[in-house]
Design a protein around this nucleic acid. Structure first.
Length: 297
DNA sequence: TGCAGTGTTGCTTC
DNA sequence: CGAAGCAACACTGC
């Protein structure tokens, strides 16, 4: 479930552990995790060996790792999709399976789902565990980074100062539900199903409201709510329902502090006398209070 | 037992 | 271009 707060938390942990490490080996048992321009894992490996981790940051839901000798030569984009996890520690691979030697913390059965790994000169490794195998590691040459499809089409980061006029303009000709638009990474990047519901609850906007029906004030409220909700979630280390763990293997506690998500049938925490309802929007469960969240127009 | 549902995104089609 | 539907994959719970 890694959304912006989870990825931010992971990146924070990775910075503490991985900076200045040199990649000396690449391992995988599922070639499709690697992408490098037109090539696959062979080309990926060739380009990455010997490079050092110079910088780690978050762009939307991507972990972005700058690699080079002295200056950045390429960037590694990691998307965790639904069930991806990054494990850091000391391990050995035995019969195609990774075994813990001195992991930063116990990673229990997630070791079973490791499908790729970067091994560093100091003997430590970064493992990429992913039950559903939707996650990807995409290598992009530095010169092509800004115009790479995945990066070029990324919407604004909700934690950065946002130009409300430009967002309002984009929503003008969108007839779909605001909930669906919030999940569109090309409008605003980093929000997923959980925080989409949380943000709309906080803003008092019904998730089925058509984006084009929102007033300028509504949009301002939503963006303000987004900052608050996401910042709080980062403070709490993200949400852990099932799979999510940070780089140190720790869960986040936002889920226990959630406002509406997965609270169907329970009393609304704001008005207390309505019951949280659930509706499917574009195939995704959406939770809201029918009393506190009014539909626009 | 079998099947719907699950946190995400990209591709195809209209 | 916008929008809908489905595919990628594995597991859980009813």
């Amino acid at each position: 479930m890694p959304e912006l707060p989870e990825v931010e938390t992971i990146v924070h942990g990775l910075k503490k552990e991985l900076l200045n490490k040199q990649i000396v080996e690449v391992w995988h048992d599922w070639p499709r995790v690697f992408q490098f321009s037109e090539g696959g894992c062979k080309e990926f490996k060739k380009h990455v060996l010997g490079l050092t981790i110079l910088k780690i940051e978050r762009l939307g839901k991507y972990i972005v790792i700058s690699l080079g000798k002295r200056f950045p030569q390429s960037r590694l984009l990691i998307h965790l999709k639904m069930t991806g996890r990054i494990l850091i520690g000391t391990w050995k691979v035995e019969g195609g399976r990774w075994k813990s030697l001195a992991a930063m913390s116990s990673q229990d059965n997630s070791l079973r789902y490791v499908h790729s790994a970067l091994i560093f000169a100091d003997g430590t490794a970064m493992l990429f565990s992913d039950i559903r195998k939707f996650g990807r590691m995409i290598l992009v040459e530095e010169a092509n980074f800004e115009r790479h499809e995945r990066i070029r089409t990324l919407g604004v980061d909700p934690l950065q100062p946002v130009d409300v006029d430009s967002i309002a303009q984009q929503l003008q000709n969108r007839s779909i539900a605001i909930k669906q638009v919030l999940l569109d990474q090309s409008v605003v990047s980093g929000i997923g199903n959980i925080y989409g519901d949380e943000i709309l609850f906080k803003a008092g906007i019904h998730p089925l409201t058509k984006a084009s029906d929102l007033t300028f004030k509504d949009i301002t409220e939503i963006l303000k709510a987004a900052k608050r909700v996401l910042q709080k979630a980062i403070r709490l280390g993200g949400s852990s329902m099932r799979d999510y763990r940070d780089a140190e293997g720790k869960k986040g506690t936002y889920f226990e502090h959630r406002l509406v998500y997965k609270r169907e049938g329970l009393a609304c925490i704001r008005c207390k006398n309505s019951t949280v309802e659930r509706v499917i929007i574009h195939g995704r469960s959406s939770h809201y209070c029918p009393n506190c969240q009014k539909r626009g127009v």
